[in-house]
Design a protein around this nucleic acid. Structure first.
Length: 508
RNA sequence: GGCGGCAUAGCCAAGUGGCUAAGGCAGUGGUCUGCAAAACCAUUAUUCCCCAGUUCAACUCUGGGUGCCGCCUCCA
């Protein structure tokens, strides 16, 4: 408590007291849960306009599965949340194209590693686009950064953080006092050697991790080796991410993200490499998405419960449904996958789609007196929910709440042109964050348009035979017409509309 | 064994020290409808895993249980 000599009048009228309040009210503060601090903290980027952001990408040896999709959709949500805040986002996502898996895969198929990984990377890029992801600025491949990795390894040896033994280079965690800070592992209580065959590794301590691995005989035969002062080697996993982010995003990036199971050892090791090298933390904010579970277990090859994006498509689910299903759960909560749940998401998405479709088709009429009173809470709740560690459930709740209130208004055709415009603009703003709604009218080709009109005329004169004949004709052209209170609505019978992304009709 | 996370209706899921515990799916009842298919509206938790404690008041805070998930050095 401060008591001013003049009762505070002079001070209370200064900028200090008058200017601040409206500013902070208008723009609520973006908060993220930071793994380093174990709590939600206000997001403070290093630069006020630019944000550097990295997501651990896929290993190019398998088809995209739903577990990958979740990770990357969360990364996309972070990307969009930052972009909506006006930041210029430098988003980097890598390909791990040189590791145990890709080498083994290439050997199995008698291909070079590059030939083996290329189709997987291409397929992955296509899948990400299909899922509505905003493009990263670049997707570096680990194999392009080996020189940098060798340099980092050498530098770490010179600095005393790493050592060479029998042709491999290891990071000496006993030299790095901060080791374990990110993942909060207690090194004294760790069960080392439980899941790794210690006989395979010549390390001073079982806790040390590999920076560069001595190339095996088979790798040497395949040409998978790089010359270093200590012999022919190839990089280990942890140094790859470190080398790529240091090359593109500088010593410290704003946000590093991946799924939770990567905190230890991967992120701990990545950070140890970078901090030992530069003296600075690799990232200021560490965000981790939770796992995707099938029957209560993490989706993984080990649990043999992998469901690929292709599997889900084969069951007739569109990319938009997959996106909606993965997106509508909070990123720090595990998702239990099942086709029944995916179906529930599809039905829910249909309600949203139906609303958008009706709104777009609505012929403007008289103004509705209360619609603005519904729009403001939607905008406020949605954006403050998203600012609060991306509380998507609350945000979507406010959207569905809005739909519930506005549906009866649409049924009565009670919106004027301005109101319709405001609502659409508002929805577009929300959609910039979630990219779920279809807010563009699908252009009808004149022939189809003519047939729909022809059928309406037949129906008006109760010529049911003719009306049904035209409907059949339309169906042959892949168009399914449904009659609603406000007129016919049409959609494509197969696949997804390329023009607007509308779902295929569910015919049961 | 160590560390971390989670527990709210049949299912998914927000949320708060006291105001009607959001929203979605499924169910039930209704409206609309030539047919078809939807859609739309209404309704569904005296209660928030269990046991203690703090408090005038707890689902929300504290302590102790129980259950589930992840990680503990190379599957990412």
């Amino acid at each position: 408590m401060v008591i001013f000599p003049d009762s505070g009048e002079k001070y209370l009228s200064t900028e200090l007291f008058t200017k601040k309040a409206p500013q902070t009210e208008e723009e609520s503060q973006l908060k993220f849960y930071n793994a380093l601090k174990r709590k939600k903290v206000p997001f403070e980027p290093l630069s006020s306009k630019k944000v550097t952001f990295y997501a651990c990408g896929p290993t190019a040896h398998e088809a995209t599965n739903l577990s990958h999709c979740r990770r990357f959709i969360v990364a996309d949500l972070i990307h969009r949340t930052l972009a909506a805040k006006g930041y210029n986002v430098e988003f980097l996502m890598n390909f791990t194209d040189l590791d145990d898996n890709t080498i083994a895969g290439a050997e199995n198929k008698a291909l070079s590693v590059a030939d083996f990984t290329a189709p997987y990377m291409q397929a992955f890029t296509n899948d990400m686009e299909a899922l509505g992801m905003k493009q990263p600025i670049t997707m570096p491949k680990a194999s392009d950064y080996v020189e940098r990795m060798i340099k980092i390894s050498h530098d770490l040896i010179h600095k005393g953080y790493a050592y060479e033994l029998h042709g491999s280079i290891y990071f000496d965690i006993s030299k790095f006092s901060e080791y374990g800070k990110l993942s909060k592992v207690d090194l004294d209580k760790i069960r080392s050697g439980q899941s790794v065959d210690l006989e395979e590794y010549d390390k001073h301590s079982p806790l040390d991790f590999t920076l560069m691995k001595r190339s095996t005989l088979s790798e040497l035969k395949q040409g998978i080796f790089f010359q270093t002062d200590f012999g022919n080697m190839r990089p280990g996993w942890h140094i790859e991410c470190a080398a790529m982010t240091l090359s593109h995003l500088g010593d410290t990036m704003d946000i590093h993200t991946a799924s939770r199971n990567l905190i230890f050892p991967h992120h701990e090791n990545e950070n140890a490499i970078a901090k030992a090298l530069t003296g600075k933390p690799l990232a200021n904010h560490w965000l981790h998405s939770e796992l995707l579970l099938v029957d209560g277990k993490m989706m993984s090859a080990e649990n043999s419960n992998i469901i690929t994006l292709q599997d889900v498509r084969a069951e007739g689910f569109s990319n938009r449904v997959v996106r909606f299903f993965l997106l509508r759960h909070h990123y720090r909560k595990p998702i239990e996958f099942s086709f029944a749940k995916l179906t529930a998401a599809r039905t829910s998405l249909r309600r949203l789609d139906e609303f958008c479709k009706k709104l777009l088709c609505l012929a403007p009429g008289n103004p509705h007196p209360e619609v603005a009173a519904y729009l403001t809470p939607l905008e406020n709740t949605f954006s403050s929910a998203m600012d609060d560690d991306m509380n998507i459930s609350k945000a979507l709740g406010s959207l569905f709440d809005f739909i519930k209130k506005v549906n009866p208004i649409l049924a009565q055709g009670q919106l004027d042109a301005d109101q319709k415009k405001y609502i659409l603009e508002s929805l577009e703003k929300l959609n910039a964050l979630i990219n779920i709604m279809v807010l563009e009218e699908c252009p009808l080709n004149p022939e189809i348009d003519g047939l729909i009109k022809q059928r309406e005329e037949a129906r008006k004169s109760k010529d049911w035979q003719n009306a049904d004949a035209v409907r059949l004709k339309l169906e042959e052209k892949g168009i399914i017409v449904t009659d609603t209170a406000t007129g016919p609505v049409w959609c494509l019978s197969g696949g997804t509309c390329e023009a607007c992304g509308a779902e295929k009709c569910a015919k049961k």
